[in-house]
Design a binder for these strands. Structure first.
Lengths: 244, 244
DNA sequence: AGCAGTTTGAAACAGGTGTTTGATTCTGTC
DNA sequence: GACAGAATCAAACACCTGTTTCAAACTGCT
């Protein structure tokens, strides 16, 4: 009466049949990354996989399960291909921050993976599926924790956890910008790629920017030219309404 | 033989009929922001607008034109409600940067507008429609230029245009993070809102972070502890492949 | 009131979607 | 070689989508 059994349920890995299963995962990765979950049609995926329309439902139960499987696999793949380099005891926090930023950028922009992981994540931000909860638990939260450790080493014991979170988001925000805003970047600076080609430039810039920021914030009163308080209009819509 | 005339083509603004046209724009804004262009159904929009299914096609020609109109209007609205405060000659660059960041955050997170503009922009990043070109030309490019002017005043004439662009993207990346990554933030830090409520916190943090960064980068050789070069493994896939 | 033009409404259309079906082929095992 | 189970296939199903149709209601004139 409930769902039927689908092959993926049987965890038996030695199955001889799963050539089409693999083909579906690969085709699915391409299609989902290109057009997103809802634009993707199982007919298209099956065509590219050289399989029948019924293949998705036979091997995965439904389209959404295939999607979740693809997303998880792409995430594992990106993480395996571009892991955070192990830090020795002599590795400075600054170097570890650069490593973190470079690995993160590689994972989301990587040309080898056609930036599939980054694109799928960006889509997941805009219309989250059930797969996101798993991804946050298994991948994002550990990364967030790793970044917090690095930042803590940089800023010392002073700043609160809350401050540390904000610092982390400033770093990650810079990274993800190049992943999430490609359509605008292409239109705003045409002919100037902000993708895997420029990975090193971006890594070094974001690292330098963030390090300067963190160091500047850690030793607060450097204040070369304290801004002279101006009238300060905190009410936003007060601006310029007076043309009648 | 070609398209029929649709009311919006006639620019006559005084028309008495456009109550349903307005209702469609309003309902469309809600629905498009909530579920995105492709998930949105004209039936749903029309139901909320208290109009017939045919209303969208009658008043706008098709769904995509309605969408473009809604997007443009929301953009204008966000810009009008949270304009960049005019800067007097005595306004410091630092203050102008804060103004820019606050206005930007307000536009994308604003509760008054239910963050509609920000959400629609985020979706546009993931699956751009034709409406994006217009938006870049009319709204994003001017904003980008305004930010560049502020940053130029902060860093002086030294840094290249290219560097200025990177600085700008670091600032905007931090801002948009809170707009684009809400689904992750909610899961990662539940019960801790990173939305309009915390607008002031976010503004001050991003401003302080960016100012510290820009100042640190402008006077390069502060270098309190130059990182000692470590072996530096640049080849990413060298990791751990050896299990046979 | 009468009438042309505009605007609505219910219903239908045409096309695409994920999924299911049931027969057919393949595969490994006795 | 026979046979059970797994895997594939073409076809159909059920549903939802944007859009069209065309008659009915409404509107502002004269």
């Amino acid at each position: 009466m409930p769902d039927k059994f689908h092959p993926q349920t049987r965890s038996a890995p030695g199955g001889a049949h799963d050539a089409t299963r693999r083909a579906l995962l690969d085709a699915g990765a391409d299609v989902f990354a290109e057009v997103g979950f809802h634009h993707a049609t199982v007919r298209d995926i099956c065509r590219r996989a050289g399989a029948n329309v019924a293949a998705v439902n036979y091997h995965f139960g439904d389209k959404e399960t295939l999607y979740a499987e693809v997303l998880a696999e792409q995430s594992r793949l990106a993480m395996a291909l571009h892991p955070l380099p192990a830090a020795g005891p002599d590795t400075t926090p600054a170097q570890r921050l650069e490593d973190f930023i470079r690995a993160f950028l590689q994972r989301v922009l990587s040309a080898e993976l056609s930036a599939r992981h980054g694109r799928m994540m960006a889509r997941e931000m805009v219309e989250p599926t059930r797969a996101l909860d798993r991804l946050v638990a298994e991948s994002i939260r550990p990364q967030s924790a790793a970044l917090s450790v690095i930042l803590r080493d940089l800023v010392g014991p002073g700043p609160s956890e809350e401050t540390l979170r904000l610092l982390g988001m400033s770093v990650v925000g810079q990274i993800l910008f190049y992943c999430h805003c490609q359509p605008v970047l292409i239109r705003l600076f045409p002919g100037m790629p902000f993708n895997a080609e420029r990975l090193d430039t971006l890594t070094l810039h974001i690292t330098a920017f963030s390090l300067a920021a963190v160091r500047g914030l850690s030793q607060p009163p450097v204040a070369p030219a304290r801004v002279p308080r101006r009238p300060k209009t905190p009410s936003p819509p007060a601006g310029r309404r007076r043309r009648s």
